[in-house]
Design a binder for these strands. Sequence first.
DNA 1: CTGAAAGCGCTTACAG
DNA 2: CTGAAAGCGCTTACAG
Lengths: 352, 352
Amino acid sequence: MNSTIYDIAREAGVSIATVSRVFNDNSGVTPKTREKVLAVAEKMGYHPRALAQSLARKKSRVITVIVPVISNYFFMEVLAGMQDKIVDYDYDLQIFNVKMAHDSDLLNQANHIIKRGWGEGYLVISVHLSDSEWKALHKYKVPVVLIDEYYPGFDTVSVDSIEGAYTATSHLIRQGHRSVGMICANPTSKPSIDRVLGYRRAMEDAGYMVDPEMIAAGENMERDGFTESNGYEAMSRLLTLENPPEACFCASDIQALGAIKAMKDHGRQIPIIAFDDLEFSEYVGLSTMRQPMYEMGALAIEKIVKRIENPDTDVTHTVFSPDLITRASAPDYAGINEPDEARDEARISRNS
Amino acid sequence: MNSTIYDIAREAGVSIATVSRVFNDNSGVTPKTREKVLAVAEKMGYHPRALAQSLARKKSRVITVIVPVISNYFFMEVLAGMQDKIVDYDYDLQIFNVKMAHDSDLLNQANHIIKRGWGEGYLVISVHLSDSEWKALHKYKVPVVLIDEYYPGFDTVSVDSIEGAYTATSHLIRQGHRSVGMICANPTSKPSIDRVLGYRRAMEDAGYMVDPEMIAAGENMERDGFTESNGYEAMSRLLTLENPPEACFCASDIQALGAIKAMKDHGRQIPIIAFDDLEFSEYVGLSTMRQPMYEMGALAIEKIVKRIENPDTDVTHTVFSPDLITRASAPDYAGINEPDEARDEARISRNS
DNA sequence: CTGAAAGCGCTTACAG
DNA sequence: CTGAAAGCGCTTACAG
């Protein structure tokens, strides 16, 4: 079990170079020697150590994912796409999670991970930095692709949150609701900021005043507020307003789950459209703006592999347009329907 | 960025040994030299490569998680516990996922991962092998802890599925339902097998015949059948039986979500108790047998670290007893209530 | 087809 | 307090 290439070489009566060759099936090794080597390797339970190989080859064939808390449904579906895609290539996935505790510290954590140099490339999910911080990161000249973020110097794959929020809100307005509220998340979270922006634009374009009270969030900002309990609290606030909204756009599916429970508990149902389309959303009848999370993960793998193997090609940006999926939580009275089958099309992907 | 310890040594006018020392703050280095080294390191963006350190130290400080598909809510919550716990130690988490495609192949995949030797220890989640396979694995004499599995030779942390299923089913029976059905998952899946067993025992102990038709699953065995769509289909079958059950025990929360939708679509509600207690289950009002997934993950980290640092201690087994959490899906008429607050106690942990 | 040797980027006794 | 040197377990030109 703890045998090294030397043990095998000795036992098989060959040089370590030969042993190495049979495990890398490179240059022609005589079938006879190959078999002998394989036989003793099998007997001694030998397998080349990935660590030593990586050092000698100067490549580890690992792709490192940097993500704030894995335990988030969005990441999970993105990760699923990565997992399924990576088997097409000969790389392994390593996951590091950074703490969002001190926002300003995110860069340092990412730096630390990158400098240690485990991965040949880095997939950075939902890490939102300032312009100067991105620049600092960029200086490392290491393959990086950003997911759920956009920055000119890196390959990116993201979704247009502003547009999605605009679409959802407009839909609610067109259905005739005279007041539309919103459940947002952490005010420092990029996706939340953008979704609030899209909501505001839709309201303004429709000639509505935006009442600050109509934009609510819960207190608990764990996971940037993308939790059931946050949504529950937010909806409770909205419903106990003097003039509660007649409909609601919610920044995430997971919050919407809490919001729906809050509506039940308060005995008042209003139409709600969320954002994500997690796997279970179909089963709880949640209308939502679909992000192609799985596809995003798969695409990110493709991009990082390309960049690792061809570092000098131009950077590409893919921005998906979220699709409105209408279900029971905000049924489609007005016939502006977009059937479930349309899920996988109607997606814009523009490159620059 | 690509500078090595030699570059720093040269630039700082010291030996590489000294540079190494300042980065490992070992033996006393003169403050002056330390500062000088740190300065040039900073200037040249140097940081010791984890890969090279690992080889030289013969320890990587990485713990490898072996899991079939990450994108599973159960794993996700277990992973969350791992992530939060691992920061207490100076280890990093690396995740590999094995394909369940060919069952017999699982061992080979695990072997391959272990032999490559990235990790100092391995956390194996929901990989169910035969006795001889476990033995084969055991021969490597590598630190391993099993999660959601029990095997004498390894440290394990698991939950008593049989007991949980028994409790759930008995509860339903005690509530007076004359027939109780069950939604199971893949017949080859260990948790599913055990839960069916517990269900059967409860039925038999209550003097009921077990009708095979009353134990249903969907066709789609992706993720071992632990999906919403599988539960949907299973419940549809149950409800269209000549004599549909009056209540149902369901092998997982995620399937129950599908089952609940099926009940709505069929216009027939029966009480249902599931198994897991995922985070969102509280919000959809699902009664369920709670597995302490987060705690299981955290405990697994503790065990593996202990084993890595102290390989010769006795193996320990922790078996949690799932707690019944009653919610709207199977309200507690009979007063056999077990309040939510009891969640984190009432847990049995037996060591051997 | 196969071997000797240098090298990957570090750490760590061992001297001094 | 600091350096020279061996070693971690491989790969890979370079010869032959």
